[in-house]
Amino acid sequence: MTNSSSPDGVMLTERPSGRSVTTGARARMSPRRRSEITWALIFATPAILGFVLLKAMPILFSLYISMTDWSAVGDAHWVGLDNFEKMLFADPLFWRSLQVTAYYTLVSVPVSMAFAFFLATLLNQRIPGLGIFRTIFYIPSIVPIIASTVIWLWMFNPDFGLFNSVLGAVGIPKLQYIFSEDQVVPSLVFMSIWGVGPMMIIFLAGLQEVPKELYEAADIDGSNAWHKLVHITLPMMTPTILFNLMISMVAAFQTFVQPFIMTNGGPNNGSLFFVFWIYRKAFQDSQMGYASALAWALFIIISVLSYLIFRTSNKWVFYRGGDD
C-alpha cells in the first residue's frame, strides 16, 4: 500500500504513528541497549572521575591560585594579574630559568633525535647480533632517573670522575662539567643522549615501515645512499620525526630531576631549569600563587610551541595516503 493510493485520512493516521514508533524506540530503548549504556558509564566512571577531580578541577583551581598571593597557609588574597606582571618585569630569575630551559631544549632535542635516528639506522641494517645491540642501546633509558643522575654526578666529578680521567689520559686539561656555569647545560645535554632508547625504537619501527619497493626503484635509477636517505627515508619518516619532536620537546621543557639532584640549579643559576624554579617557589618558598602563575606560563609556552610545530608540520610532514 503506497501513500499516493491511500486516502488522506489513512495517510494522516499512518504518518504520525510511524514517527512515534521511531522516537519511541529512542526514548525507551531495548533493555539490551540501555544496559549497554549503563554499564559503559559504570566502567568509564573511575576514569571520568579521575579526569574531573584530578585534571579539570586542579587546572581551574590552578588558574585561580595564580591570581592570588596564597602561601598554602592562611587566606588567599586576589591579586589579579600581579603575579604575571611580577614574573615579566620584576623577576630576573624567571627570564634566567626560561633561558636555561630554552637553551637546553634547543640543543638536546635535535641532538638526541639525530643520535636516536642514527642508532635506528644502524639497527635497520642486516648485521649479526641486532637483538643484543638493540637491548644494549635501550638499557640506559630504563635506568631510574634517580640512579642515572647519581651515576652521571660521579662520572662528571672533576677530580676522580670517568670523563676527566679519559681526557687526562690524552693530555686534555680537566673540565668542570656540571660545576661550571658555561658547561653545565652542554653536560646535561650529553647526559640526555644516553637515554634515547624509546625514541630509537620508535624511529626503528618507522624505518621498517618504509616500503622496500621505493629503495628498489631508486636502485634501478642508480641513486646513491645519500640520495636515498634524503629523498626516500627522511620524507617517509617525517610523521615519526614529528611525533618524536613533540614528545621530546615537551619532556625537555619539564626537566627537573637533573638540576634537583645534581646541581641545585647552579652554578650561578646556570642550570636553573624552569620546573625546578617552579618547585622552589611552590615547595621551598611556599609562594603557591606565584608558582602557579609560573606553571601557567610554562603551559602557555609549551602549548604555543606545540601549536606552531603542528601548524608548520603540513609543510614538511609527508603522510602516505590511505595507509592507516
Binding site: L54, P58, I59, Q254, V275, S292, A295, L298
Partner: peptide, 16 residues
C-alpha cells in the same frame, strides 16, 4: 590531558 605539563596540576593537586 596527555599533553598537559605535570607541573600545572602538581601544585593544585598538592593543595587539594
Amino acid at each position: 590531558t596527555l599533553m598537559l605539563p605535570y607541573v600545572i596540576t602538581l601544585i593544585p593537586t598538592f593543595l587539594i
